[in-house]
């Protein structure tokens, strides 16, 4: 897998409790990215935020039911990202998807460097 020069970064914002086919939405998105052979995807959990529905999402330390804001960041060439978009359109029904230009400086992987 090679990735260099101009690329696109997609950031998808939604809630941690959002589901897709009984699975956490963020996991479903990462699996979809792998299926489409995208270069990589990372999920971040926010501490507090609000979004399209303008409800404050907040993580509560003492409660098991939290709906923290979640952001998935995906970087790849424009054509690969375009392939992902129709799926995202279906999967994310409440949230935001933003795309920006990035320049890839380095994308490397060492065979067996992390064998455990």
């Amino acid at each position: 897998m090679k990735l260099e020069g101009k690329a696109k970064m997609l950031r998808i914002y939604f809630g941690e409790d959002d589901k897709w086919e009984d699975k956490p939405l963020y996991r479903a998105i990462v699996e979809k990215c792998r299926e489409l052979d995208l270069a990589g995807a990372t999920v971040f959990r926010g501490i507090e935020g609000y979004g399209a529905s303008t409800l404050i999402r907040r993580t509560h330390h003492l409660s098991f039911s939290h709906d923290a804001p979640v952001m998935v960041s995906v970087i790849d060439a424009d054509d690969k990202i375009q392939k992902l978009l129709p799926f995202l359109d279906k999967m994310v029904d409440e949230g935001m998807i933003a795309m920006s230009e990035v320049e890839v400086i380095k994308y490397v992987h060492q065979e067996g460097a992390r064998s455990q």
Partner: peptide, 15 residues
């Protein structure tokens, strides 16, 4: 520094 909860990258390994 941000810590993610899930992801994969160049080595295809799920973190």
């Amino acid at each position: 520094v941000y810590q993610g909860i899930l992801g994969y990258g160049a080595n295809r390994r799920i973190h």
